[in-house]
Design a protein around this nucleic acid. Sequence first.
DNA 1: ACCCCTGTTCGGCG
DNA 2: CCGCCGAACAGGGG
Length: 264
Amino acid sequence: MPELAEVEYARKRWNPGLGDELLAVELHEKKRIFRGTDTRALRRCLVRQKFLRSEARGKQMLFVFSGDNWLGIHLGMSGNLRTEPARFGPGVHDHLVLRQGERALVFRDARQFGRVRFHHGKETPPWWNAIAPEVHSRDFSKSALREFLRRHGRAPIKAVLLLQSGFPGIGNWMADEILWRAHIVPHRRAGELSEKKLIALWRSTRFVSLASLRTIGRDNSEPPRTWLLHDRWKREGKCPKHKIKLRRETIGGRTTAWCPRCQR
DNA sequence: ACCCCTGTTCGGCG
DNA sequence: CCGCCGAACAGGGG
């Protein structure tokens, strides 16, 4: 489910709990989701703290609690957030439950490719500061993009768009949508884009990211019918523009759909 | 039953 | 040594 817009929507699903204290933290420390995390500290520090605010950056979320406590969540492939009534009993895949007086904040992740992090300290956590500039920020400049593409010059552009160190929040469907709009064939090596194509890529990256934040990210509504994403998983998926059959192939380890007429 | 999957990490190999 | 690629992680849905 989660790329940057879905992550933004997921983040807001815990908003009903803003300003309220945590009465209990329920988790099983053995779960893969907590790999590398001090779950004892997480439990000990978070209880009786107030949920102050949250933020999304790329595919990561940061939940800020009183007493200098920071909870990081990555949804992986199958993770999601929701709230439940206070007396709710967790299911097998509900790996983290934060109890408040009026409700429970729940993180579910069946496949456990996601991750929970915890940090106690005055400053924002190091793993949060390390996230690359968001693609809709000013720091995602044409020259930064040019440099990143040069550094990964031999890889297919599709694979490079999936690198979170350059395109935080971009995942499989967004990468396909971006390349389709920029008229770039997904096999093209990143170092072999013309200046014109590079600018088209920069524009479409920002467009797809901003427009999906305004639909999916705002209220989980669908982007316009003219987007590629509606057709890309269909067996007989067609290019929204030419109505010809999309090509499909594994590139950079992921199923990729593209229009052979639009993208060259 | 079988195949596929909106993600990341790690080890092998060129 | 660098960097790409496939496999592995694990469960649910078509």
